[in-house]
Design a protein around this nucleic acid. Structure first.
Ligand SMILES: [Mn+2]
Ligand SMILES: [Mn+2]
Ligand SMILES: [Zn+2]
Ligand SMILES: [Zn+2]
Lengths: 150, 150
DNA sequence: ACGCTTATTGCAATCCGTCGCATCTAGCAC
DNA sequence: GTGCTAGATGCGACGGATTGCAATAAGCGT
């Protein structure tokens, strides 16, 4: 216990303690990784980063914690159109939903916020009488640069 | 060779011969499964069904053929919000794109066709100057029935 | 501070998808 | 029909993700 772990708990840790979800050294490490990630980490990257904080973190704990975060709507799970293999990517859920676009040629990932997307979700809730908890729109295609060079 | 295999080739088989893609006994079986599927089969189900038509079909051939079909835009790959495990589901691509909704409580999968979805894709193509090849909108939440019984 | 209870963890076994390689076969030229 | 050749297949090995289980530790009551 080198440092007082309670300072700057971060939003994810705060959510855990509010909800009475048990906090462990391993979870603290994984949460910190997710909090500070610039974006779109896969499980292997998360494990590697978490091990740097707490070397005892095991692969299975990473998966279990990701599942927990997902269940609580704190992270989103993405395929990114499986551009780089079959695995999944994770990112901290932010205020506004965004669309992910993946270029099938150069592999670049782009994000896009759209009011029409919000309208669409409202339509689904109304017309299908379906209460939306999580949504994911992924698009594969060709980015401007790649279209230019054919 | 009990039956003449060339009759009623089906659209997928037709596409293959038009494009000069080699047709094998194993592919014929897998394509037949995809053609006749009512919907949303995972790889294990596809393998089992294909084996009934041609017992020699191997797991790896199923995956390789699914990848081929995907590359050619003939099938869509879905997560269905990972309601039943982490695997993927496959369905024959039809004329109009549709949204998939998965009930987090009863597991029911619903489909929905929406003009607003089409508008949204047009917006992405225009505003992001991105050429869309494939898109996938999946929504998790609660269906009418499950909302009723809370 | 200490002990109790129960959720969480690491580990090993297992399951599922992928890949390299030797063999086989579809499709074509004759 | 026969033989040729590139492409496809089955098989086995591999690597990533999941799960059961015994050991561990978080958090609470005292
Ligand atoms: Mn996926
Ligand atoms: Mn569908
Ligand atoms: Zn690109
Ligand atoms: Zn339901």
């Amino acid at each position: 216990m080198p440092l007082p772990q309670t300072e700057i708990p971060g939003r994810l840790q705060a959510y855990f303690s509010e909800r009475g979800i048990r906090m462990t050294q391993q979870r603290r490490a994984i949460l910190q990784v997710m909090e500070t990630a610039s974006k779109h980490l896969d499980a292997a990257q998360i494990l590697r980063k978490a091990k740097k904080i707490d070397p005892s973190v095991d692969r299975s704990t990473v998966y279990r914690t990701l599942k927990l975060l997902k269940r609580n709507g704190l992270i989103d799970e993405l395929d990114l159109m499986h551009i780089h293999g079959e695995g999944h990517y994770y990112e901290r859920k932010v205020n506004r939903d965004h669309i992910h676009m993946a270029c099938l040629r150069c592999g670049k990932i782009m994000e896009f916020v759209s009011d029409i997307f919000e309208n669409l979700k409202q339509q689904v809730e109304k017309d299908c009488r379906f209460k939306i908890m999580v949504s994911r729109l992924e698009i594969g295609g060709y980015c401007t640069a790649c279209r230019a060079q054919q």
